[in-house]
Write a protein that binds this DNA or RNA. Structure first.
Lengths: 132, 132
DNA sequence: CTTGACCTTTTACTATGGTACAGGGTTTAT
DNA sequence: ATAAACCCTGTACCATAGTAAAAGGTCAAG
């Protein structure tokens, strides 16, 4: 099957401007064109764009997704130092998880301080955080 | 003690442009000025800016930090729906923790696939993610 | 054969969170 | 008294990740 840009965008749940944006950023290759210059895409590109979105939703920057796509594209350049890249990202993710657990605890405490389940005008937790 | 903008910035570990940026965004009040128009700050503002940075580092947007500061400022408007706000943020944080745990697992698997602890040219994990 | 829906490029704009610079004024130290 | 170091405002710029609009080309249906 082959698709025009709007069909591709719809199949991937993104805006068609986003497709062109990914092309500009070299996350997807320049597609073939019809005689009139219309972009045409294959199912491979559907998979690729969905992968980009999925990785991005999981907290990867587009430049990081690009690095991962190096494996898919079997590109020597982007595969360079993959172990280092993955290790660094892993440490960041572990730190983030720790931070978020603290935040979760804080938010839970905060909720319990809301007397009427609506507003909250003073809170020793925020005040403690505020006063160091 | 009172501080000029550079001293405040240094005490809080931020750029002085960041202080002016926070002022523009109403995260800190317009400060008093010297006769010459220089901003002067109290220790309260040191605490406030440090709080902003700390919350931000934990993953809060400045607009979310502003909401939390409503409690510190005892501001009826920003304290409105605090329970709802905190609950929503808590759910987001819980979801993020789940996502990040998946990513951590993925990255760990990925590392183990790097044959020489340097590069990685093919990987069933990425391929599985890529193929849905 | 015209209308509407689609496509093209280029450029500008959005939000978030800053940073930098230009062109001034002030304060401090020598 | 003059230079360095600081301050001011305003504007422009950076990255990230898009979104929108302008001005035009293409294509299918009625």
């Amino acid at each position: 099957m082959s698709y025009r840009i709007s069909e591709l965008a719809a199949k991937c749940g993104v805006n068609k401007e986003t497709i062109r944006y990914y092309e500009r950023k070299h996350l997807i290759q320049e597609p073939n064109r019809t005689k009139a210059g219309y972009r045409i895409y294959s199912d491979d590109v559907v998979k690729r764009v969905r992968f980009i979105k999925r990785m991005q939703d999981l907290g990867f920057l587009l430049q990081e997704v690009d690095k991962l796509l190096g494996v898919v594209d079997k590109d020597d350049n982007r595969c360079q130092d993959m172990f280092k890249f993955v290790s660094k990202k892993e440490r960041e993710v572990q730190q983030q998880i720790q931070d978020l657990k603290r935040v979760e605890q804080m938010l839970n405490d905060l909720k319990e301080r809301c007397p009427d389940e609506k507003t909250l005008h003073e809170c020793p937790i925020i005040e403690t955080l505020f006063d160091e």
